[in-house]
Every structure is written in C-alpha cells, then in structure tokens.
Write a protein that binds this DNA or RNA. Structure first.
Lengths: 232, 232
DNA sequence: AAGTGGTCTAGACCACAAA
DNA sequence: TTGTGGTCTAGACCACTTG
C-alpha cells in the first residue's frame, strides 16, 4: 500500500500535513477545508490537536478561520514578518561592538504638530525633548530624537549616562503603540552628528508609545548602510 | 471578604491578570513566577488555561519560559512588531488608489554577487531578472527588481501584465526567507523611473525566498515619503 | 436553526534542563 | 533525579454567523 503512515505525533505534524496540502493544492486557494472534527478523525488525533495546528497556520496568515464559516485557504496569503525591538545598546552588543552613548540635548519644548499627530489628541502642549547619539565602537550608530510626556517621566530622571530607551523599557508599561520605517535624507546638522555626507540616505524608525496617556514618541535615525533585518 | 472575585472566564482573563502583575511589579523583572499548577489553583481554572495565557505572553516577549526552569519576567522585555507582507497591488488598493503595473525588463542574466550572497551557495550562475514598476493612481509607487530561479519559474510565464509578486505568492511554496529594510539614495536612473529628484532618500525592502532551492530575491524601492507601518 | 470554530476541563504522559 | 513546561485526549459547552 502506498499510503503514508500519518504518524501524527503532535500538532506540528498536523500543521505540516495541512501545510503540505495547501502547497500541493490539495486544498486550493478559496477552498473550504474539512472540519476540525473530520480532520481529527482522518489524522487520528483529538480535535484540540487539529485546532492547535490550524490556529497556528491561521496566525501565520496561511488559513482564514471563521466560526460557522469554516476554515478556508485565502486567495492571497498574507505573510507576516516579525521584528524584535530590543534596547539599542543590546543591538550594538549583539553586533559585537562596543556601545557608547552621548546626550546631546534635553529640554522642555513645545511639541511640533507631526509629533502631536502621532501621539494623539491628548498630547500635552509641551514635552521633554531628548536628543542623544548612540555609538558603536566609537562611531556614530544612531541618533535618538525623543519626546517624553513630563507627566510620566519625572524631571529628576536624567539621561546623561543612559538612554531614555532603557529607562522606559524597564519602567513604563504600555498598552498601545505603533512603529514605522521610512527613509530620510541627511541635512547638514544630521550629517554632522552622524558623521556622514549631507544628502546621504538614512533609515529612520518612528515609534510611539501610549498607556492611558501618551508616553513617548521617538525617531531613530541610523548611520548610512544600516539594515533592520528579520527572518520570515 | 476583600478578595477579588477571580471571574476567570477564559485564558484572556488569566493573561490580563498576569499582565497586570507584571506591570504592577508584583512579579518583578528577573523573578520567577509561580507554577502553572499553582496559578491554576489560585485563579480557579485548569492548568491548560494558564498554559495558554502564559504561552501567549511569552510569544509577545513579556515572559520567558523554560522547561524545568519555570517562567520568568525578562530583565529586558523584547517587544515584537509584526508586519503584514501583502501583494503590492493590494497595498495600493488598500490606500484607496488605483493600482497600475508596467514591466520594464525581463532577461536571463548573470547573478550579481550580492544577490548570490543573499540567496545562498546553491544559487545558479544565471537567473531571470525582472524589473517592473508599480503605479498608484498613475504615479510611480515602487520599483520591483527581482531575480528568479529559472528552475522554478518556467520561461513561458510572462510578467507583462501582472507582477511576479502575485504569481509567486500563489504558486510557490517556501520554507525560509528573510526580509530587511534599508535606505538608498536615488541615482539618476532610479530617479527617472520613480519620478523623483536624484539623490532623494528612498526606503528599500529586500526579501529572499527559498524552498529546497533558491526561489527569488527581490528589492522593492518605494517612491519618496513612503512608510511601512505596523501596530505593536 | 444549525454548523463550525473557540475554549474549558481533568487527567495523563513526556521532554527537557536544572539541581 | 526531579520539577517544570509542552502536549495529548475525550468530552463538553459556548459564541458566532451563515443559511
């Protein structure tokens, strides 16, 4: 008999089998796939195991599940990429380089409109504006330009020797936020701080963090050539 | 009795309670938290429910779990950001714009070293090189510069009217890949194609895809000002 | 109204790593 | 060795949503 032994030894095996059927077009895009109960019977395991497997595939975007509607293979699978957001100092250490930090400015200032737009309507009129440079092996690595809600960060907390990055991650909880990548061209001030040519293309990451109220908005601008990478 | 009613109605409630304890420093960074079994008893639910909740938090980077080692609150929580990788045409449609597509070139060419490096050592010497422009409301949106393994894509498949992007996502399976963001400066050729000033800073996304063998490497270069966004 | 996924339970066994 | 998370099971009830 040419039958494969199901060898269903776990939910991963069930997931792999389902993945095989999707890729082999046994289950075609748009198709409804069998019930969890049917699959459990067919594969010789409990329904909970099938559920675990299919839920995993759904989280990865390879299946769409709806109550009563059943499970379907999406016409256009949506892949998901996950990035780890670590402390900058750790990033540098993981590259095998020596981290450094230099505070450039720290003052309470009126919040520019774009920052206010990112943080939401309940943003204070003035916030604490901290600009700092991160170094890797003594070379500029990234410029941190941050706005902090004074109602959240006591003015007594100084960021002379360590990044607000680290303070926040260990002190503040948050429930919401967003993150975006874009490219910026180095103006002369930026070029001077990062030690690159004016006009160089730089990768920028914007991040905002909110709890009950706005906490912080930060823009990280990396030295030329920097990449943010992930596996799929 | 001042005891809170646990009201443990599901694993989400357990997760929220755990989250509350983390944020309230009831469980401090570095601490080991109670057993699943103990928590189950305390919260009045089954261990599987606690497991589900803690696994969820661990996936989000807010807990670290190890067999025999127990569950701990990490000293430095690692936030994870997830991006959806959709078909470019869908991206444009979701922005409420009219998608367009123009094939610029399609030829078998020697593979440049950087592309080979990204795809792995078993990369063919020559691959199919497809360059196309995506349009949004008639304006350049992004340039797609793609290398395809001829052993995977029949030469008879033409990309005159639709992007290789769409063909691949619906036809090819893959098991591994990676993705990275960086910034590039527009040279004159790029500027002409994207209709921007030479020297403009552009966001670029590199993606590679492998199955048993290399499948494709693509670089997407977006028009100026483009952002890739996600919620946290 | 009825079918399907979502979840809970109680108990069990296993795999791994720390003591 | 032993404690802890990882997972499976069989059955049950519930929630959502589609017909």
């Amino acid at each position: 008999m040419g039958n494969k032994k199901p060898a269903t030894l776990g939910w991963q095996a069930v997931r792999d089998e389902a993945l095989r059927r999707i890729r082999a077009r046994v289950w075609q895009p748009g198709d409804r796939i069998p019930d969890e109960a049917d699959l459990a019977t067919e594969l010789g395991c409990a329904r909970a195991t099938v559920n675990r497997a299919l839920r995993d595939l759904a989280e990865a975007g390879l299946l769409e599940r709806r109550r009563r509607g059943g499970t379907r293979v999406p016409l256009t699978p949506v892949r998901k990429a996950t990035f780890s957001i670590a402390i900058i100092r750790q990033d540098i250490e993981m590259r095998g380089q020596m981290p450094g930090y230099r505070l450039l400015s720290d003052a309470v200032q009126p919040v520019p409109a774009p920052v206010r737009a990112r943080l939401g309507p309940d943003t204070p009129d003035t916030m604490r504006h901290v600009v700092a440079l991160h170094l890797a092996d003594g070379q500029p690595y990234c410029l941190e330009d941050r706005w902090l809600n004074p109602a959240v960060v006591a003015a007594s907390v100084g960021f002379d020797t360590f990044s607000a990055n680290e303070w926040l991650v260990q002190t503040q909880s948050f429930t919401a936020g967003d993150l975006s990548f874009h490219a910026v061209s180095a103006d002369s001030a930026l070029a001077a701080r990062l030690g690159c040519e004016p006009g160089a293309a730089l990768l920028a990451v914007d991040r905002t963090t909110r709890g009950d109220r706005p906490i912080t908005a930060v823009r990280l601008i990396y030295a030329p050539g920097h990449r943010v990478e992930t596996d799929l």
